[in-house]
């Protein structure tokens, strides 16, 4: 597989996947990486070098926000990423878009 094309195809989807995971619960970076690893995905196991730039873009666009939370006494504060209301709205739009998009792509590819 040509890694350049694979990377381009993945690029547009990763934001949506991260938003989806965060819509279930707030997570810190390492947790997000583990969650995706747990999905046993061949294409979407994220590394730090990919995940954090995605989170920063989503944060800059106001779709997620970061919060420092102390879970246990004497524990260092952890930086959690939380989806915002705007992020929830955008995720809905992306899910609809993805549905239409994948249907159309499949249709064209089947012809």
């Amino acid at each position: 597989m040509n890694t350049k094309y694979e990377r381009q195809l993945k690029k547009g989807v990763l934001e949506m996947l991260v938003l989806k995971l965060l819509s279930k619960e707030k997570m810190y970076g390492f947790q997000l990486i583990q969650e995706l690893q747990a999905c046993n995905s061949k294409y979407f196991s994220l590394k730090e070098g990919t995940l954090y730039p995605i989170l920063y873009r989503l944060e800059d666009d106001g779709l997620v926000k970061s919060e420092k939370i102390i879970n246990k006494p004497k524990e260092l504060a952890k930086k959690y990423y939380v989806i915002t209301d705007q992020g929830v709205e955008v995720l809905k739009e992306l899910e609809n878009l993805w549905e239409d998009f994948s249907k159309e792509v499949s249709k064209i590819m089947e012809d």
């Binding site: 970076g29 390492f30 947790q31 730090e48 989170l55 260092l76 952890k78 930086k79």
Partner: peptide, 8 residues
């Protein structure tokens, strides 16, 4: 983030 990631 990387520092927290490593700690975790």
């Amino acid at each position: 983030d990387l520092s927290a990631d490593i700690d975790e």
